[in-house]
Amino acid sequence: MTTVPEKDVFALINQIAEAIALTFDNDCEVCVSDLDTPEKAVLYIYNGHVTGRKVGSPLIEEAEARVKNTDENVYLNYKKQIKKNGPSLKSSTIVKKIGDRNIAFCINYDCSHIESIQYTLMNFLQTSSDQEDMDILGINTPSALVPIIQASIQAINKPVQDFKKVDRLNVVRNLDQRGILKIQNSVRLIAEALGVSRYSIYNYIKEVRGESR
């Protein structure tokens, strides 16, 4: 079996890092570090402004913890913050031994812009209306509600006929938190989907809201 020269392996890693950074644009930092030389660990880095690093920068505190662990590890889709009041990062890190060197391949995605968009959308979508009989573009028609109710039921991950009371409460709680119970016909449709009476659904609603029967 042919052994690939170490320099070719690093060249490929560098190309993959650049490809990821270009694909996901300026908010995505990709960094390749040598864990065995923490004082000048960064070998390759793209969009280094995300964490304020460049080639030759030392390991950040979060990565230093990996220096003591020479085993190969994979840390996928975790959240971290490099410094106080810094951006929230969505990260994945792969630690592999290449030759005699412990190498970390890390992706850090700055979620600040997405979180700002999310906040704006949530504020925009909030309403103060409690009217149950509004029908905007057919949103609260039975055909639109049924898939939402079914999705909450399927999340329990068992057949409806096997549901216990706690399962039905979880479905009602989920739908209530999503505002579905404010929509006309929702109680009837939930009762039909769960195979219980509307009276039972109203009791479940009181229970999940902490109200007395």
Rank of each mutant, 00 (worst) to 15 (best):
G56W: 08
S57W: 04
P58Y: 04
T37P: 00
H49S: 10
L89F: 05
L35F: 04
K84Q: 09
S91V: 13
D36F: 05
I60K: 01
Y46Q: 13
K79T: 14
K68T: 05
K54L: 14
T37Y: 06
D34N: 13
K40W: 06
L43A: 09
E62I: 11
N77C: 05
T37H: 10
N69I: 15
N73M: 12
A65E: 15
P87W: 12
V74C: 05
P87S: 09
K40L: 09
I82S: 03
G52A: 07
L35V: 10
S33T: 08
P58W: 03
S91W: 06
V55M: 07
L76F: 10
Q81H: 08
T70G: 01
G48N: 06
L59N: 03
R53D: 11
C31F: 01
N85R: 14
L43H: 08
K79H: 13
L35Q: 02
I45T: 14
G48Q: 05
A63L: 11
S33F: 01
P87K: 11
K84M: 13
I82R: 05
K83I: 12
G52H: 07
R53Y: 06
E61K: 14
E72H: 03
V42S: 00
L89R: 02
V32D: 01
G86D: 05
L89K: 09
G52Q: 08
G48H: 03
L76K: 11
D36Y: 03
I82G: 00
D34M: 03
T51N: 06
D36Q: 13
Q81A: 07
N85I: 08
Y46S: 11
I82F: 04
V32N: 01
D34S: 01
P87Q: 13
R66T: 09
Y44H: 12
Y44S: 11
L35D: 01
Q81C: 07
K90T: 09
Y44V: 08
V32Q: 00
A65F: 12
K54C: 10
G56Y: 06
R53F: 03
V32I: 12
K40R: 15
K79G: 01
I45F: 00
V50L: 01
K83D: 12
P58G: 07
E62L: 09
S91E: 09
R66G: 02
Q81T: 15
Y46F: 15
Q81R: 15
T37V: 14
H49G: 04
G56E: 13
V74L: 13
K83E: 15
